[in-house]
Amino acid sequence: MSIPHILLGLLTERPKHGYELKREHDERLPGAKPVAYGQVYSTLQRLERDGLVAVAETLSDGGPERTVYRLTDKGRERIRSWLSEVEPPAPYVTGALFTRLVLALIAGEDPQRYLDRQRAAHLARMRELTAVKTDPARTTARLLAADHALLHLDADLRWMELAARRLADLTKEIT
């Protein structure tokens, strides 16, 4: 997830301070890994250095000081251009699974057993995600986040089923 782009996107609505951005990131992208406040803070400083955001005001209603940031014209142009692009298709964990499978073969471990264990781990995760999906209190955003993760894990599992069927050929090739 590109935190800088998410922050720029959240600032298109109105100026916001760092804690607000962290909270909105976590609440409005409910499936995403919560972002650390420190990362929001350092990202805002970089965005400011690059002229994509600017300080709008500093609030201090009794408590600690809060810097409110606004989008600059350059920042608005940057987020608009990013939103017109598509997400580059990226590998997720399949690469790591393949590495483990090959290493199991090389190390003389039982590769089928590795695939069985990995399947069990994937399916356990998919059960948790299915529980998110079927929770009557879930929001549609959360449902879609779960759908997304489920489809990717399902793709991994299907890849593992194929890997199991091609295991003899792979073994010949690798060892």
Binding site: M1, S2, I3, P4, H5, L8, L29, P30, G31, A32, K33, P34, R46, L47, R49, D50, L52, R78, W82, E87, P88, A90, Y92, R113, D116, R117, Q118, A120, A121, H122, L123, A124, R125, E128, L129, V132, R142, A145, A146, H148, A149, H152
Partner: peptide, 28 residues
């Protein structure tokens, strides 16, 4: 039946569903 495996592994941690990692280059 395939012998059941010992429950273990990275799953079951109750983490967020959207397991997307920061694979995209940063803006700056």
């Amino acid at each position: 039946l395939v012998d059941p495996v010992e429950p273990a592994g990275p799953a079951g941690t109750g983490g967020p569903p959207w397991g997307m990692d920061a694979t995209l280059p940063e803006v700056t």
